[in-house]
């Protein structure tokens, strides 16, 4: 059985979600190749070649692959699948964009966001925003899988696979790249951050949210999140939303401030390694998932926490 992993990268650097996906792929088979589809991405392919356990790296380059157009990825990968039994893609927004297209063209199901491999055709995946784990067995001849990177450890470096250049597909006729604005974030990106500080409706206003949540996040080098209630109330922008309808995060440390812990919020953060809750209501549901709970008004607790962090050398 041969498995293809599609690398996650920004044409300059390989993202560690690729190494994590290789770990999942190696549970399926020892014959794992990596595809780097991009533009000016030779450095990415060289980095991928160093991942332990990788047989070879395929590099395909064109403008449209560099722009990550789903139609181009589909045209590139579908013919390659003659030589593979499974294709695994990290479940990033880029991977989620093109992988189902490949599945449909191959007339197979996509097994989405797996968190564990039982055997070469049986996988575990979260449903209902992680409120249940589904074990599914695929009857398709070829498997198209996306992998939740946070569920797997990164494969180590130490390999020296060959990089082989392959021809890119023709440019798609009906999709045209206009532009891309990548935000130069002053803070880490929410979905990949090691620490997340989130605020809830208790903040009471956008000004208060900025005044309380953001300095604490900056002190910790954390991303900022918010509950849906805070977003709906206009205290925080929509892309801060953590929860079933927002972003699902699993950082090392999640600090929930003034968040009661509605089901839809818990669904988005309960896989975090350590959860801290600060809320003045001792009965708030957030305390049921918190490793460390501080029953206090955030107005006093957050300045105290800032001071305690300073005292601890942060």
């Amino acid at each position: 059985m041969a498995v293809l992993v599609i690398a996650d990268h920004d044409n300059a650097t390989l993202k560690d979600s690729t190494e994590k996906t290789v770990t999942a792929a190696l549970k399926l088979s020892g014959d794992v190749d990596i595809l780097v589809a991009g533009k000016g991405a030779k450095g990415v392919a060289d980095a991928a070649a160093k991942i332990t356990g990788v047989r070879k790296v395929l590099l395909a380059e064109s403008d449209e692959l560099g722009e990550g157009l789903a139609e181009s990825l589909e045209a590139l990968v579908v013919p390659l699948m003659n030589g593979y039994d499974a294709v695994l893609t990290p479940a990033t927004s880029q991977g989620k964009n093109f992988s189902p297209r490949i599945a449909a063209k191959l007339d197979v199901a996509q097994i989405s966001e797996i968190v564990d491999v039982v055997d070469a055709s049986t996988f575990i995946r979260p449903i209902y925003a992680g409120n249940a784990l589904e074990t599914v067995q695929s009857s398709d001849a070829k498997k198209v899988i996306t992998v939740r990177p946070t569920a797997f450890k990164a494969a180590a470096d130490g390999g020296s696979a060959k990089v082989e250049t392959i021809a890119p597909p023709a440019a798609p006729a009906k999709t045209h790249f206009v532009d891309q604005k990548l935000v130069k974030l002053e803070r880490p990106e929410l979905s990949g951050a090691k620490i997340v500080v989130s605020g809830g409706r208790a903040m009471g206003s956008a000004e208060e949210f900025q005044k309380v949540i953001e300095p604490l996040a900056d002190k910790l080098g954390a991303a900022v999140g918010a509950s849906r209630a805070a977003v709906d109330a206009g205290y925080a922008p929509n892309d801060y939303q953590v929860g079933q309808t927002g972003k699902v995060v699993a950082p090392e440390l999640y600090i929930a401030i003034g968040i009661s812990g509605a089901i839809q919020h818990l669904a988005g953060m309960k896989d975090s390694k350590v959860i801290v809750a600060i809320n003045k209501d001792a009965d708030a549901p957030i305390f049921q998932v918190a490793d460390f709970g501080l029953v206090a008004d955030y107005k006093a607790a957050v300045p105290d926490l800032m001071a305690a962090l300073t005292a601890a050398g942060k």
């Binding site: 249940a132 784990l133 589904e134 599914v136 959860i275 998932v289 501080l294 926490l305 305690a308």
Partner: peptide, 30 residues
């Protein structure tokens, strides 16, 4: 194309503790 073999509850989080002060909290996080 997929046969659902099992739908299970995710592992429950272990019970947490309440801390009294921000200083305790930072010590625990360390």
């Amino acid at each position: 194309r997929l046969k659902v073999l099992k739908v299970a509850e995710p592992p429950k989080r272990g019970g947490g503790i309440k801390v009294e002060t921000a200083t305790d909290l930072v010590a625990n996080l360390k």
